[in-house]
Write a protein that binds this DNA or RNA. Structure first.
Length: 794
DNA sequence: CCTCCCAAGGTTTTT
DNA sequence: CCTTGGGAGG
């Protein structure tokens, strides 16, 4: 390779390379870069010096512009290692890398392209000596790890675990860190707050302990990566200076989703040369709950008064119909800068809306429709199913399994959240970082070694008292003898610690994948899985084998980083989102958030119901509701040719409860003339539910898609009834089809016996007016779709 | 002191 | 539905 990366050596002496140096030499390459770009895009790609803000609407060729801009920098003779490009996901980073390579060749490989988090992890790993309290073997904790730490802290502080929930506290801590408040500053903030609450104070206490714990474990959480990097840069001018010199050209993608910490990192790095290009779209800011601050993009011009601003408003992705629908929805947001995307694409088809009776039928209908699409020349790869919450995926997934249509769930809880994967990772982490008590506790009895909770508790007590790690206790005979356990247990502990030390010695001799195999074989974990006859064990073994393959691939792909710490770094920062293989023909299922940055010819947005999308927890606050609307905007703009929106009249919750629902307000914000509306009229036993095409009688009114008052909405969100699973479901469909007459006697689960006074409505909207014998209950009108009633025989 | 079995309770979105 | 914690047996 022509350019080596002179990282810690001689790059200070590197001569200044200015724009245009190699223009003649590379003019052909440069010309190629600009091929097929529109004037605005050309402008963005040409503007290489100084601060640049690109406001890029959905589908406006943003990735292309960014890639071309990188290519153009390289073509102008900028050394690749002077370029830092930050993306939001690893997937986006990889995609950009591939595209840049295709355009400019090998050179692109040396561009530093990564997410904020992995960028910070790399920096911290290099500069760890200047980070207080951490040593070079620090590990990165994922959410489930940090959760366990927080739970321990809550318990230690004797707080009520019901009142102080781990997830809630953790999200507060995370928010604090993203705003660069360490526990000390957080505590001060709570103390000086006007309305200090007991809860906040306790959160501050948990935070304090949590911070201390992570430090003693030599572990960082995701937010630490950012916060500690900011601290590193602000406390050590010489280090900051080094990186400022190195990264002369900085690009930040998805700028609307940066939080305070990320903003500071960018700002600090760019402070000297101000060659910073940010790309984003405020309408696609959907990570506010994670501390992202739209003001970063809105205020860019204030931060950099010299900034060039370029707007990309031509959309190349979607049909006019889809784009107009998206525009119509997003216009309901009050807090936004006006902007309207346009396209030269054709009108396209109307948006198809399905109203199903239940989530089950919704899935069935979608699956049927996809089978039709397949027959009509679409491939499964063309289709994506989007949902607001992961919980929706199960019922959809079941539909695909029934229909035998191949699918893949992108992101969500998957591979790396599996018990067995977490266990093997815990082994690796402990081997790497002996201070990691959390990992130790996880695997000290996996496989079963006769080391129980009581023993672990004793060890932990002892370790804490002496301010050392648990591993230190068990690996030191003198210390271990002071802990009051049975001789047999002590022997087991000794064997365990010897095994870990033995693995530690192996790490230099074996490649990571071999090391994993070694651990699995010699720890006895594999044997336990093979001999225990639990039904899930077979799958566990397969997953572990898959994990070995992941490691193998990692080793062959980047042999220079193929050490244990390189692997751990890699693993803790990738997500399942990044491992999508595109070779097979299958439908993609994912959350709206995961879909950001992607596009598909056909998109289904599912569960378009109040309480789901927008989510019920966002209904009370306007800013959160607007964020939901932006998520909806993101979802709609993923579609290229065909857009389906589906919702159900009632939906099963996790327990088996059923909840009535009504269509999302966002659906009503799409002009009716863009919509083709189909509604399921009756429940069917077959898996091909019948839908009726409803033609609007007048242009203003579509049956069933009528405006619902906010009050009704609230009611519908709250309305929740107990039904006992399938039996109840069957009963409901029986109730719906029964020929009800006034005078029929019924029994209601909660309100007891009653007499039917009146029968109203048809199909799923059928209601009964019932007089209950219990005077306190009186006369009620109940919908047969949801009411837990049984007919009583005379 | 460890392990197995049963009940209860909990779901927004992710690096 | 799935994880987590408590209680009884071994």
């Amino acid at each position: 390779m022509a350019y080596s990366d002179p990282f810690d050596s001689d790059y200070y002496e590197e001569e200044e390379i200015e724009q245009g140096t190699n223009e003649d030499l590379q003019s052909e390459a440069i010309q190629k870069i600009f091929e097929g770009l529109n004037p605005r895009q050309v402008e963005a790609v040409e503007c290489l010096q100084g601060p640049l803000l690109i406001m890029a609407g959905a589908g406006s060729g943003k990735t292309r512009v960014l890639t071309c801009r990188i290519a153009n920098l390289l073509a102008h003779g900028v050394a690749p290692w002077r370029i830092l490009a930050i993306t939001f996901t690893n997937k986006a980073a990889n995609e950009m890398k591939t595209r840049a390579e295709r355009m400019i060749g090998e050179l692109a490989k040396s561009v530093w392209l990564s997410t904020f988090h992995s960028f910070c992890a790399k920096i911290l790993r290099i500069e760890v000596d200047s980070v207080d309290g951490y040593n070079k073997n620090f590990v990165i904790y994922s959410m489930s790890d940090t959760k366990a730490v927080v739970r321990d802290c809550i318990r230690e502080l004797n707080l009520d675990e019901k009142k102080f929930m781990d997830t809630q506290i953790l999200s507060r801590i995370s928010m604090a860190k993203n705003n660069l408040l360490d526990s000390k500053k957080y505590k001060e903030a709570v103390l000086f707050a006007n309305n200090k609450s007991e809860y906040e104070w306790q959160v501050a206490n948990v935070y304090e302990l949590y911070e201390k714990r992570l430090l003693s474990l030599n572990a960082m959480d995701f937010d630490d990566l950012l916060m500690l990097t900011v601290r590193l840069f602000t406390d050590h001018q010489e280090i900051l200076n080094k990186y400022q010199e190195r990264f002369r050209y900085i690009l930040v993608d998805e700028y609307q989703d940066t939080n305070e910490a990320q903003y500071q990192i960018m700002k600090l790095l760019a402070a000297k040369y101000e060659n910073v290009c940010v790309v984003g779209d405020a309408d696609q800011s959907i990570y506010g709950w994670r501390g992202a601050d739209m003001r970063n993009i809105l205020n860019f011009e204030t931060d950099y008064p010299e900034a060039t601003v370029i707007k990309l408003e031509q959309n190349y992705r979607s049909t006019k119909m889809i784009l107009d629908a998206a525009n119509a929805v997003i216009q309901h947001n009050k807090y936004r800068k006006p902007k309207e995307l346009w396209t030269e694409n054709g009108d396209g088809e109307k948006i198809i809306v399905f109203e199903a009776l239940t989530g089950f039928y919704e899935a069935a209908k979608i699956v049927n429709e996809i089978a039709d699409l397949k027959r009509n020349g679409f491939s499964y790869n063309d289709v994506a199913l989007l949902y607001r919450i992961n919980a929706q995926s199960r019922i959809l997934e079941e539909g695909f399994v029934r229909a035998g249509i191949p699918y893949v769930i992108v992101g969500g809880l998957k591979f790396y959240d599996r018990m067995e994967i977490k266990n093997i990772l815990a082994y690796l982490r402990l081997i790497y970082n002996l201070q990691d008590n959390m990992s130790l506790k996880r695997i000290i009895n996996v496989p079963r070694r006769g080391i129980g909770l009581t023993t672990v508790a004793k060890l932990q007590d002892f370790a804490e008292k002496h301010d050392i790690s648990i591993f230190e206790v068990i690996s030191n005979a003198w210390l271990l003898n002071q802990v009051d356990v049975f001789p047999k247990t002590r022997q087991n502990l000794r064997m365990f610690s010897e095994f870990i030390l033995n693995c530690r010695n192996m790490q230099d001799k074996l490649s990571v994948n071999k090391l994993i195999s070694y651990i699995l074989k010699n720890s006895g974990y594999m044997t336990e899985l093979q001999t225990d006859s639990k039904p899930e064990d077979e799958a566990r073994i397969e997953n572990l084998e898959e994990f070995i393959n992941v490691a193998k691939e990692f080793v062959s792909k980047s042999p220079e980083e193929a050490t244990l710490d390189g692997f751990l770094n890699h693993i803790s920062l990738i997500s399942d989102l990044d491992v999508v293989e595109e070779s097979e023909d299958r439908v993609s299922l994912m959350t709206v958030h995961s879909a950001k940055g992607l596009e598909f010819p056909v998109v289904f947005i599912t569960g378009m119901e109040e309480g789901i999308f927008p989510h019920s927890r966002s209904l009370l606050r306007e800013d959160q509701l607007e964020e939901e609307r932006r998520a909806c905007y993101v979802a709609i703009t993923r579609a290229q040719k065909k857009l389906y929106i589906t919702f159900a009249d009632s939906r099963a919750n996790f327990g088996g409860d059923t909840k009535a629902s009504c269509n999302s307000r966002f659906l009503e914000e799409i002009p009716r003339e863009y919509i083709d509306f189909y509604k399921q009229k009756t429940a069917t036993k077959t898996s091909t539910p019948a839908f009726v095409h409803l033609v609007p009688r007048s242009s203003v009114k579509i049956e069933g898609l009528s405006k619902v008052s906010p009050k009704m909405r609230a009611k519908s969100n709250v309305m929740s009834m107990n039904t006992k699973k399938n039996k109840e479901k069957e009963k409901i469909s029986a109730n719906l089809s029964r020929n009800w007459q006034p005078g029929d006697r019924v029994n209601h689960k909660k309100w007891g016996d009653g007499i039917v006074l009146e029968v109203k409505g048809l199909g799923t909207e059928r209601e009964l007016r019932i007089k209950f014998l219990d005077k306190d209950v009186g006369i009620k009108t109940l919908s047969l779709m949801y009411a837990p009633i049984t007919k009583v025989r005379e």
